[in-house]
């Protein structure tokens, strides 16, 4: 089996959580916040949700949807926000625009602005991702597969859940590496089409390992 000239280095990450000191007590304030907060804040409340839900998951995989449904008790808005798949958007500004449109449209249809009565306000946060090399590297598909199995879930998040896409860093993108270094464009395409939105980090890893094992079996390296 082909060996890569350039090894793939697995990197894990830790999220430093920064509070912006800004809260929303009703859905108008939530809308205003989404319009104005930095991109790192939208990133925190959507994509990086997966880093924080390793054991117990919230009702929806983004904080805006969960807040609307649980704290404001506006299940309609919760459901409408929950269906927004952040992995569908090329950049965070497109995602911001979609969220704004949904909330604006929802509020236009209501006589009053839903607000928190008994629940907690929404606290806008921001994500800073600290990269940490794992020391695990791969030069073949077998080593890549074993690396995926061995690394902690932070590395799965880093390489497959958006850090790479957000930073547009080709040298840490496993899909680019599989394509260019191992000449496996079909496998790369298959992984690229795996949508992580409705799975957990652990669930995604299980699916990914199944795909990699299948390819290894085909090439007689199972």
């Amino acid at each position: 089996m082909r060996r890569a000239g350039r090894p793939f280095l697995f990197i894990t990450c830790h999220e430093l959580k920064e509070m912006l000191g800004r809260t929303a007590w009703d859905e108008r304030e939530l809308l205003d916040g989404i319009e104005e907060v930095p991109a790192d804040s939208l990133y925190y409340h959507t994509l990086s949700y997966f880093l924080r839900s390793k054991y117990l998951a919230s009702p929806y995989p983004n904080d805006f949807a969960t807040w609307a449904a649980i704290q404001v008790r506006d299940r309609v808005l919760g459901e409408r926000l929950a269906v927004v798949d952040p992995f569908d958007y090329e950049d965070i500004e497109s995602l911001r625009s979609e969220l704004i449109t949904i909330i604006d449209d929802h509020l236009a249809s209501l006589p009053t602005i839903p607000r928190v009565v008994y629940g907690e306000p929404f606290h806008f946060m921001r994500s800073t991702i600290i990269e940490i090399p794992t020391g695990i590297e791969a030069r073949s598909l077998r080593e890549f597969r074993d690396g995926v199995q061995a690394v902690d879930l932070g590395a799965i998040f880093y390489h497959f859940f958006g850090v790479v896409r957000r930073k547009n860093s080709r040298h840490v993108d496993p899909i680019v590496w599989l394509e260019e270094e191992l000449d496996l464009p079909d496998l790369a395409g298959r992984i690229r089409r795996m949508n992580p939105y409705v799975s957990s980090l652990d669930g995604f890893r299980t699916r990914l390992l199944a795909v990699l094992d299948h390819v290894l079996e085909e090439v007689g390296d199972a």
Partner: peptide
């Protein structure tokens, strides 16, 4: 701060740990 609800309007970064 230990919780988001403890954060304040401050001109310095506020981290949650």
């Amino acid at each position: 701060f230990s919780l988001p609800k403890f954060s304040q309007r401050l001109p310095i970064p506020q981290y949650l740990i």
